[in-house]
């Protein structure tokens, strides 16, 4: 069996939004400890990992199940959540559906068809990074918006103790520099200068679910995948994005 009650449907919607920007389908691996899911996008450029411990739920009861979901359909249903709705997720094993129930002034139920998506058994690779930056999501997203004006990819750099978001187009350039004492920076753990270039659209998708005051943990090296990690409503979201590399 699987039944989970989430006090704020809107918080869970953010998690589904973040995943559905990058993935078509996902397998939720539910167990008595909580829900986890790991998947790569079809092009293998990005990896999404989510961990929602049972403590993040108002009520939680589950055996071990793999629940395969079409994320586009799930996202459309979650878009129907109202501000004060509770969310109940419930596996109907007989009908092979996931019941998605919004409980507000009325009880509204959707039965979502399950997909035969087997769990990937993916692990987030344990990479050692020379640099780790904790930054307010709003500040980072703003820097990405600046970069978006000049090109569709962006360099994330660590230079001389500063964290720099830099883009260069045919004609124009943009640069945002964060120093360690900036109000937007929570901490910078800098080991060495680094530079990696990334597709901007992916970075925007990965950070879309974060509110501006949420804290992003960004790990970067030179020509390495970037790791971006943040928490939403007690759930942990981790993303890896492969870089663009000079050939």
């Amino acid at each position: 069996m699987f039944k989970a009650v989430i006090s704020e449907a809107k918080e869970f919607k953010k998690i589904i939004d973040a995943a559905s920007n990058l993935l078509d389908e996902i397998c939720f691996e539910v167990s008595e400890d909580g829900i986890k899911a790991r998947a790569m996008d079809p092009s293998h450029v990005a990896l999404v990992s989510m961990d929602i411990p049972k403590e993040a739920f108002e009520e939680y009861e589950a055996d071990v199940h793999d629940i395969g979901i079409d994320l586009e359909a799930f996202k459309k249903i979650m878009n129907r959540a109202k501000a004060k709705d509770k969310l109940i997720l419930e596996l109907d094993e007989e009908k092979n559906k996931l019941n998605v129930i919004f409980k507000g002034t009325a009880r509204r139920k959707f039965a979502l068809a399950l997909y035969d998506v087997s769990s990937s058994n993916l692990q987030v690779p344990d990479i050692e990074y020379p640099n780790e930056i904790l930054i307010k999501a709003g500040a980072f997203v703003d820097a990405l918006k600046d970069a978006d004006l000049v090109n569709d990819h962006v360099a994330l750099k660590v230079d001389d103790g500063k964290f720099i978001i830099y883009a260069k187009g045919d004609l124009n350039e943009s640069e945002t520099i964060f120093e360690e004492d900036s109000e937007d920076i929570i901490s910078m753990n800098i080991g060495e200068n680094a530079r990696s270039t990334f597709n901007l659209e992916y970075l925007k998708d990965m950070t879309k679910a974060a509110s501006s005051d949420d804290i992003l943990k960004i790990c970067i090296g030179t020509d390495m995948p970037v790791k971006i990690e943040y928490d939403i409503g007690g759930a942990n979201l981790t993303f890896l994005l492969a870089p663009r590399i000079e050939s």
Binding site: V45, L47, N151, H153, T197, N199, A242, P243, R244
Partner: peptide
Amino acid sequence: FGKQVTLDDFFTIN
């Protein structure tokens, strides 16, 4: 700005 590589280029993910 180079060529997009995949995560498979960095680690074996199953």
